[in-house]
Simulated assay, not measured.
Amino acid sequence: MVTKQEDADLRRADSLAREIFSDVANKWALLIIEALGEGTLRFSELRNQVQGVSHKMLTQNLRMLERNGLVDRRVYPTVPPRVEYRLTEAGEGLRATVDGMCVWTHQFFGHIETARRRFDENGG
């Protein structure tokens, strides 16, 4: 039986924390969280915000984020049904981390670009 402490240990292969980390640490989830940080969006609006995501990948990631309690899905009884997505409190907390990653990316973009070019030129 896995204990609470073991369940929260990212280094353990069988930990819930690692499963959660794996879920949210993918490019589509991070981009969805960033887009929803601007406010509530419908599926089509979200798909337009997250350029390059397929209908299938957006659906899968939204379901995963909803399952993990990071996104709230609200369906309105209209014809056709109107569905909106927004971040939950936990999702907003994760957005702060995503925002930090965005700041880091902008700060070190030139450094990483130079390192990649050097690596590729030297036969990586």
Results as ranks from 00 to 15, higher is better:
1 M>F: 02
2 V>T: 15
2 V>P: 12
3 T>K: 06
3 T>G: 01
4 K>F: 09
4 K>W: 08
6 E>G: 01
6 E>T: 06
6 E>P: 00
10 L>H: 07
11 R>G: 07
12 R>T: 07
12 R>Y: 05
12 R>G: 03
12 R>N: 08
14 D>H: 13
15 S>P: 01
16 L>I: 10
17 A>R: 14
18 R>A: 01
18 R>C: 00
19 E>P: 00
24 V>C: 02
24 V>K: 08
25 A>I: 07
25 A>W: 12
26 N>P: 05
29 A>P: 03
31 L>T: 09
31 L>D: 11
34 E>Q: 11
34 E>F: 03
34 E>L: 08
35 A>F: 01
36 L>C: 00
37 G>F: 03
38 E>S: 14
38 E>H: 13
41 L>D: 03
41 L>Q: 12
41 L>C: 05
41 L>A: 05
41 L>V: 03
42 R>P: 00
42 R>Q: 10
43 F>D: 04
43 F>E: 02
44 S>F: 00
47 R>A: 12
47 R>V: 07
48 N>G: 06
49 Q>G: 03
51 Q>S: 13
53 V>F: 08
54 S>E: 04
55 H>W: 02
55 H>Y: 06
56 K>E: 03
56 K>D: 02
57 M>D: 05
57 M>V: 09
58 L>R: 11
59 T>R: 15
59 T>W: 04
59 T>D: 07
60 Q>P: 00
61 N>M: 08
62 L>G: 10
62 L>D: 06
62 L>Q: 10
62 L>N: 09
63 R>P: 01
66 E>S: 12
67 R>T: 10
67 R>E: 15
68 N>Q: 10
69 G>R: 07
73 R>N: 01
74 R>S: 04
74 R>E: 06
74 R>L: 02
76 Y>V: 05
76 Y>P: 00
78 T>K: 10
80 P>M: 05
80 P>G: 07
81 P>M: 04
82 R>V: 10
82 R>W: 00
82 R>P: 00
83 V>A: 02
84 E>P: 03
84 E>H: 12
84 E>K: 10
84 E>I: 05
84 E>V: 12
84 E>Y: 09
85 Y>C: 02
87 L>T: 13
87 L>W: 07
88 T>V: 11
90 A>W: 01
90 A>L: 04
91 G>S: 06
91 G>I: 08
91 G>H: 09
92 E>Q: 15
93 G>N: 13
93 G>V: 01
94 L>R: 13
94 L>T: 12
94 L>N: 11
95 R>Y: 14
95 R>C: 03
95 R>H: 14
96 A>T: 12
96 A>N: 13
97 T>C: 04
101 M>Q: 12
102 C>P: 02
102 C>H: 11
103 V>E: 08
103 V>W: 04
103 V>M: 02
105 T>A: 15
106 H>Y: 04
106 H>P: 01
108 F>N: 14
109 F>M: 11
109 F>D: 13
110 G>L: 07
110 G>A: 11
111 H>F: 05
111 H>A: 06
112 I>H: 09
113 E>D: 14
118 R>N: 11
119 F>S: 08
122 N>G: 06
124 G>A: 06
